[in-house]
Simulated assay, not measured.
Amino acid sequence: MAEWQTTYRIAWFWVCLFGIFALVSLKFCLDIDYKAYNTPTFMTERLLERDIPAHVGASLELKNYENVKDGKCLKRLPKAIIVGAMKCGTGTMNEFLNCHPDIRSLTGENDFFINDTLYNKGLTWFKNIMPCTYPHQIAITKKPQYFVRERAPPRILSMDRNIKLIFMLRDPVERAMSNYLHRLHAGKVAGKEFLQMVFLPDGRTVKETNEYIHISSYVDHVQRWLKYFDKTNMIFIDADLLRIRPWIELKRVEKFLGVRDYFTEDMFPFVEERGERCVKQMSGDFKCMSEKKGRSHPKIEEESEKLLRNYFAPLNRQLFELLNTTFDWE
């Protein structure tokens, strides 16, 4: 009996000794792993292996790694809205900004601020449809119809009086024709010619109440927005300049939004087969405008175009004076 007890005690001693040795070894290995792998580079690779958006993980710097590590990807209300105008490159601006690692854009459009049914669901519902963002990121959304809808500015103001508003504009005559072409391809024009819709029967008097003319009368809409928001909350981008030199216009928007300097000229090579500048994504693929974008406009008589330009000229001058800037729309 005594011999059995002695053997048992010896065996238990060796088991305990082995256990202590195993724990010490494990701690040593973990310390090595922590020192070797607890780095921004390693953690970025691990983020890319998980369900983390590529444009978040792929460009993380040390400061952003700390933000991701210490913060959570949460649903938050947008800090900026692209509010229009229609057919002025709002979709292109939205796509380009979504390539910025500090910006997450809502996919598609949502007319929350002009749709009573949606608006009555409340801001919590609106927040929950936004993409999740980390502390160093901002969420944005777009809806070009906000530009001309009277209920949009006060409702957006009630959500956030400091929100950033991005206005996309272009030559008003070109915009009107693009708007017509868009509706024509959507089967919503019922065979009417562009000039029939924007002129009275005399063929010389512009029909001010026409939808295409109304939207292109920018100064009227901007004045309404200025009743609710300070000009410092707004930035105005010429869609043609965004097409020609996107990196310059996007740098203006970066500064306006308060995000880091990210876009560079070499990110926007000219793609011959598309005949336009596209943004080079981190995957190496190019993000270009939709095939539906950039359709050639209908040809109109020189005299009719002159009448339209004469109509918009004083409105453009009022806009330029209001914004203390000019655009090459003549």
Rank of each mutant, 00 (worst) to 15 (best):
E265C: 11
F263G: 02
F268S: 02
E272S: 09
D238R: 04
L250M: 09
P246V: 14
V219G: 01
V271F: 09
H221Q: 02
E265M: 14
I235D: 04
Q223N: 08
L257R: 07
R245D: 15
L241R: 15
K255Q: 11
M234H: 06
D240E: 10
D230I: 11
F268N: 02
S216P: 01
L241P: 02
V271A: 06
K231R: 08
V222S: 00
K227D: 14
K251I: 12
D240F: 12
F236W: 03
A239C: 11
R243A: 14
L241Y: 12
E249Y: 10
P246M: 15
E273Q: 15
V219L: 03
F236E: 01
Y218T: 00
M267V: 03
I237M: 12
F270H: 04
I237V: 10
Q223T: 11
S217H: 02
L242M: 12
I213Q: 01
T232R: 12
P246I: 15
D266W: 04
K255N: 08
V222Y: 00
I244L: 10
Y262L: 10
E265I: 09
M234R: 05
F256M: 09
S216Y: 00
R245M: 11
R243C: 04
M267Q: 05
K227M: 13
G258Q: 03
F263R: 03
K251V: 14
H214W: 10
V259P: 02
R224L: 09
D240M: 15
A239F: 15
V222H: 00
V253C: 09
R224I: 03
R224T: 04
S216N: 02
I244Q: 13
D261T: 05
S216L: 01
F229P: 07
F256N: 04
I215C: 00
A239K: 05
H214N: 12
H214R: 12
A239M: 14
I215A: 00
W225C: 02
I248N: 07
E273Y: 07
R252Y: 11
L257M: 09
S216C: 03
F263K: 06
D230F: 14
P246G: 10
L257P: 06
A239V: 14
I237H: 06
H221N: 01
L257A: 08
R252D: 07
R245S: 14
I244F: 15
K231S: 10
D220H: 11
E249C: 13
F229W: 13
F236N: 02
I213S: 01
W225Q: 01
